[in-house]
Design a protein around this nucleic acid. Structure first.
Lengths: 192, 192
DNA sequence: ACCATCCTGAACTGCTTGGTTCAAGATACG
DNA sequence: CGTATCTTGAACCAAGCAGTTCAGGATGGT
């Protein structure tokens, strides 16, 4: 197959992202990516770039996709803050419950490997986490919650903790319990 | 240098553990371990075993060392639960603040890599996390707190989240804020 | 002084890694 | 039909990997 038609770059990118997400950067070889995407090594290299730039593209893809979902969940924070934060966590819980997608979180995985990753990749992961915190802080500020800063970083952290715990085989019930304690803390802050 | 004296196995194990802790299993080669311990490749192999069994020994070493500290922090939970949990988190915060030791957490790092690690290593990490939850649940039950189970898994998760956030360069202030929200949730649970 | 003991450096194996090149083949369009 | 365009598989490279072996040198105990 050749001539003018090209393979679907988007599909290949999705497969590569999923592989990186499950196994991490170090444990994903070009052969793994080749097998996952169905593309030849040379095709990956010529149309998706080398391993590092491909990883960066996957990071962006991941951050954009779930960033939009988080934004949507938080969009009505000023009217119903409790519900907004609950829906924020539901985005993560639904992702973990989805059998078509790996456990964990690509951003969290990248953050854990910061000391051994290239500065460019490390910076992108840290940036994404910072963006998540900002997202939450903006929503909580709009809802006029006391200590919006502290709660924002707490929720961002608890969200990441779900990635770790899901990798360790935590049940959905346990993941829900983790979130519930944080949601109760928000309720108290709203009462005051 | 040879004859009858041996190098200090304990010192070597400590160096290996630190290296694994910082860089993870995949990104630590035998040459890295050799450089870190100051031992020859063949010395590592003959007296510490292969890479996998050495990693297991490091995991145990880590779990035992900090497990004791966590136990100590929680020992007076029935009398002063709030203080006990605060001191529990202080163990982690002090470890992260210690410049002589890497950020993050060896257990969390291992948990994140579960899908690509050997079953033996994966099982040990999951076991360690389960033990942490049990430790907390026992303490909270002794303190007669409502929803000890939910709080235990929440605290265990938040504790792991500190590893992720510290790797992403979070400040001590931010890490403290993450913990504070959880501690407030405990206070409310104790009031009720 | 001697000998048993242990460590060390170096080498070697077989394999995988990321990266790159290129000729051959398949297609679509004029 | 012919030609320009694109993909593909295979091969190649230098490097790094884990694991293992072994001869030789340094040491401690006697």
């Amino acid at each position: 197959m050749a001539g003018k038609k090209q393979f679907d770059v988007d599909t290949a990118l999705e497969a590569a992202m999923t592989r990186f997400w499950r196994a991490g950067y170090a444990d994903t070889s070009l052969d793994d990516l080749s097998a996952a995407t169905g593309l030849n090594r040379s095709s990956i290299y010529s149309s998706l770039g080398d391993k590092e730039s491909l990883y960066l593209r996957c990071l962006d893809r991941y951050a954009t996709r779930y960033g939009e979902k988080y934004d949507q969940a938080l969009s009505r924070a000023s009217e119903e803050p409790s519900r907004a934060i609950r829906e924020f966590f539901d985005v993560t819980l639904a992702r973990i419950a989805d059998p078509g997608v790996p456990d964990g979180c690509l951003i969290a995985q990248t953050a854990m490997a910061v000391p051994v990753l290239s500065p460019a990749i490390a910076a992108r992961a840290i940036e994404a986490l910072g963006f998540q915190r900002t997202r939450l802080r903006t929503a909580l500020t709009a809802a006029q919650v006391a200590d919006a800063d502290g709660l924002a970083v707490h929720f961002a952290a608890v969200n990441q903790s779900l990635a770790v715990m899901s990798r360790a085989g935590a049940s959905r019930k346990q993941l829900r319990a983790i979130v519930d304690v944080s949601l109760r803390a928000l309720s108290r802050a709203l009462d005051a």
